[in-house]
Amino acid sequence: MPLLEVKNLHVGVEDEDIRILNGVDLTLDTGQLHALMGPNGSGKSTLASVLAGREEYEVLDGEILYDGEDLLELEPEERAEEGIFLAFQYPVELPGVSMTNFLKESVNSVREARGQEELSSAEFLKMMRERADMMGLDADLTKRSVNEGFSGGEKKRNEIFQLAMLEPRLAILDETDSGLDIDALKNVADGVNKLRDDDRGFLVITHYERILRYIEPERVHVMLDGKIAQSGDMELADKLEDEGYEWVREEAAAAAAA
């Protein structure tokens, strides 16, 4: 059974006559990393938000199966408990919420839901130090409020660090590579590679193929106007890098006319 099956997904914005996704089909297995590319406004981030349970989007048609179960029935926190993690494109600053307290609560709530034992403070701190080190996150950042005053790169690294802490089965990275310098980009890619394993699937949303050179996806999908317009392997990403998205649009238009 696939880890994630998105079938004919149509999504709009609640109370507004706007359609963003127009029949998305996507299947992802554990042990795989798929890249989702596409121009701005094509619906990539909307798909990520719907997968994580953001409530301002309305699913008009289609379904999402996670481990064969209906994902759309679940609250965002239940999805986290079931092993879905979204690394935000714009991680939220939470002044007054300490990283340590927040993460301890977060980790223990998903552990409890997964039937694992709650971590003691000592165990938690040890795990936090190890994973911060593994993900190249400055350990001092864990002593601050969540994302408050973090640089753009630090915020993205913090997302990958939290991914490492929460050990999800499905990790969705929403443009985690954008706005990073080369060191931070390699750092994030390195973090992702360390976390890849047979029980985990990744959906990496990106605007550019550059991060894919470091993380080598099994599949590459191109989204256009709220649909998957092309799927292929790394050669597809290379072609997009060289030629842009125009040819995808033309092929899609030709297919629609036929």
Binding site: G53, R54, E105, S106, A113, Q162, L166
Partner: peptide, 14 residues
């Protein structure tokens, strides 16, 4: 911020 926290496993109430 509420959504961010919920997406990390905290209940809406928490």
């Amino acid at each position: 911020a509420i959504f961010y926290l919920r997406s990390r496993g905290l209940s809406e109430r928490r």
